[in-house]
Each structure stands twice: as C-alpha cells, then as structure tokens.
C-alpha cells in the first residue's frame, strides 16, 4: 500500500496480526480436532494438541452413512441425518432472503438518506426503534400470525419476517448512503435522470462495498438463525441446518452433548459459507479496495 509507516511500526503491526490470527484460529482448530475423535477418546488427553486417534465416523454420521443402531453405538443420536438436504434448505432460504431484503432495505435506506417526504424522520425513528425491541417480544405474535396464514412448516413461514426488510440492514445502508458525495447525483438530475435511475445507476454501483458487506451479513445471519426456524419449521421437509444440528447438542435431559457429531456439524456447516465468502467477498471487497472509490 501507499502509506508510509516506519519499519518497526510495521513489524509490530504484523506481530499483532499474527497474534489475532492465532487467537481466532485456535478454537476453530479445536472444533476440527474434536470432530475427528471417536466418542471414547473425546475426553482423554485434553492437553494434547493433536487428536489421539483419528476417525471420520462423526462426518459419516452427518451424511447418514450409518443406520441408527450403529450410530448409537458410536455414541451419537440414533437418527437418520441428511446433511446435504438440510444444507440445501438453508442455502435456498438464505439466498432468497438476502436478495429481497437487501433490495427493499436499500430502497428504503436511500429514501431515508436522500429523499424528502412527510414523516421521514419519524418513520426512520420507528425503524431504529424496531432494532431495539428485544426479539423475544416479537416471536410469539409472529408465530401466531404465520400460523394463521397457514405457513407453518413451509419455507414461506421461515422467510416471511425477514423477506421485506430488517431494521439493521436499512440502518446500515443509510449510514453509507449519507456519506456518498452528491456531485454525481446532481449531474444526473441535470441530465434529466429520474430518482429510480439515480438509485440503480449511481447509488447502487457506488455502494458495492457496503451492499456486498450487508449481503454477507444478512446471509450469515439467516444461516445461523435458530429459534425462529425451529418454531415454524421443525418438520423434516423444511428443516434448516442449524435446527437439524440442534439435536446433536441436546440428546436427552441430562446427557451431555454429542461432542463429536456437534463439532463435525459445526465444522462442516462453516465450510460452504467460508467458500462463499471467499468467492463473493473477494469480488466485492477487492474491486473497490484497490481501485478507489470512483
């Protein structure tokens, strides 16, 4: 980069980075290490960095390679588990929500940042307020609403509350839109462009970084959502990955979690999204990262 930090500063910065990477990655490594252990070895040698014995049986269980009796002998839950199926549900739901939520929220955010209309401040205040209502209040009324609409155990029911907006997304994008320079917009208006034209041709292209970031954030938030999909979509035909993995962590009242299965599931469900982030994120963040803003 162009900045001119002096050498010792740079070394210190690199050291701090190394430390941060270590702190971040070590527990993740522990997830992987544990996912490779058979049940009988989970608790032995807690101080050793490498797994004492290595097995892929936890992963096998996730893909439903064993029948329930064998799975139970391995110390897992005696359930058929179809990782790919739950994964496809999650990808489907998260993709649709990300597309619609970011689009509609961006439109709203643009209106709040640039357009003038009666009650603008008040409505934005309400949106901000929605960010602060503890989620627990909304769960039960929303559940009853979705049930009345006949959307229980359907993808529509899982998606409904997040489809049109999230206060967080609107707030996030508005903060970015206010900081965009008005020059280009002014020029476009002089050239006779309408508001929609300005939004799609100027605001959206100028905001690839925040739009990309919020898309990733939205996608991952939906990806890891648990409570809502559990309530409205516990049936197998719409079950999301997080809900399916929930059974690995609480088998019976007092039994401990199925550590091997849980950690294998966690590691595996991180992978696709990490891949996605690498591909999608690289495109979004690098393109603006180096070419500057214009």
């Amino acid at each position: 980069m162009t900045t001119t930090y002096r050498r010792p500063m740079r070394l210190l910065a690199l050291f701090v980075m190394l430390l941060l990477v270590l702190i971040t990655l070590f527990p993740i490594y522990w997830v992987v290490r544990t996912s490779l252990l058979p049940k009988s070895a989970i608790f032995s040698n807690p101080g050793s960095l490498l797994p004492s014995t290595v097995t892929l049986s936890n992963y096998g269980r996730l893909f439903g390679l064993y029948d329930s009796a064998t799975a139970q002998k391995m110390g897992g839950v005696g359930l058929e588990f179809n990782f790919l199926r739950y994964l496809s549900h999650t990808i489907f739901v998260a993709t649709i929500i990300t597309l619609t939520q970011v689009l509609f929220s961006a439109a709203g955010a643009y209106a709040f940042a640039r357009l003038h209309f009666p009650l603008r401040k008040q409505i934005f205040g309400l949106y901000l307020g929605a960010l602060m209502v503890p989620g627990i209040v909304m769960t039960i009324p929303n559940f009853i609403l979705v049930k009345d609409l006949g959307w229980l155990n359907s993808f529509m029911g899982i998606m409904a509350p997040s489809l049109l907006m999230s206060p967080f997304t609107v707030f996030f994008l508005r903060q970015f839109f206010i900081s965009i320079s008005r020059e280009l917009e002014e020029a476009a208006y002089i050239d006779g462009a309408g508001k929609f034209m300005v939004f799609f041709r100027i605001i959206v292209p100028l905001s690839t970084a925040p739009l990309g970031t919020i898309s990733i954030i939205t996608f991952i938030n939906i990806w890891s959502d648990y409570m809502w999909p559990l309530l409205v979509g516990s049936s197998d035909k719409v079950r999301m990955l997080t809900v399916a993995l929930g059974i690995f962590r609480q088998q019976a009242p007092a039994t401990g979690p199925d550590w091997g299965g849980l950690m294998a599931g966690a590691a595996l469900s991180m992978l696709p999204i990490l891949l996605l982030f690498m591909i999608f994120g690289k495109k979004v963040l690098n393109s603006i990262g180096f070419s500057g803003f214009r």
């Binding site: 009853i144 049930k147 559990l230």
Partner: peptide
C-alpha cells in the same frame, strides 16, 4: 413422530399450545 432436543422440545410444546398447534 417428531423428536427434538430437551430444550427445543419444551419451547415447541409451549408455543404450540399458545398457537393451537
């Protein structure tokens, strides 16, 4: 038959009773 983990099970039962499901 539906099987859910202990905590999820009771949350599901309680909300189900509220919503009639």
């Amino acid at each position: 038959i539906t099987q859910l983990g202990w905590n999820d099970y009771w949350t599901g039962i309680e909300t189900g009773m509220v919503a009639g499901t």
